[in-house]
Amino acid sequence: MRDISLHILDIAQNSLAANASLVEISVEETSDYIEVTIKDNGKGMSEEELKKVTDPFYTTRKTRKVGLGLSLFKQNVELTNGSFSIESKPNVGTVVNAKFNRHSIDCLPLGDLLETFITLIILNPDTDFVFKHKSPVKDYQLDTRELKTVLNEIKINEIPVINWIREDYNG
């Protein structure tokens, strides 16, 4: 994975596969670290599943025997001497938290966070997202539920709406 934004897109797919109706993605940048939190209200995992979830040779899929998403993410965080945690409760949801140490030479760049947000919205117009991106020069928050109260019958993944989000983020 080339950057953190791609990891986020990959990990968020787990939330969607867990039938989450709300996914909250928060990224906070300081000069010392990049902290990523992905929280969902999906079906969650049992303690037993949780123990195995970052094992690359564990997956709930039936077609193949490897599941690399979370294990690669954890590995990339730990390479920077950062911290990684995952908490989950059945029928409540899952929270993944990762803190990348920016002073490490192995710290991945953040990448294009906006494109990750947009891809998630394009593919999952019926799921609600809260996106937060905080840095010394940015304090951005988007709650798709707020947009949907204005849009009503119009889908949030219509291109004019996507362009609105692009401009709003870059504004």
């Binding site: 947009l147 204005v150 849009l151 009503n152 019958e153 119009i154 219509e158 004019p160 709406v161 609105w164 401009e167 709003d168 504004g171």
Partner: peptide, 19 residues
Amino acid sequence: MKKTIADLEKIRMEVLKNI
């Protein structure tokens, strides 16, 4: 440019016309 909810409302009307 930072966008406003009013812009979004405009978009909604335009998309509705084409739908």
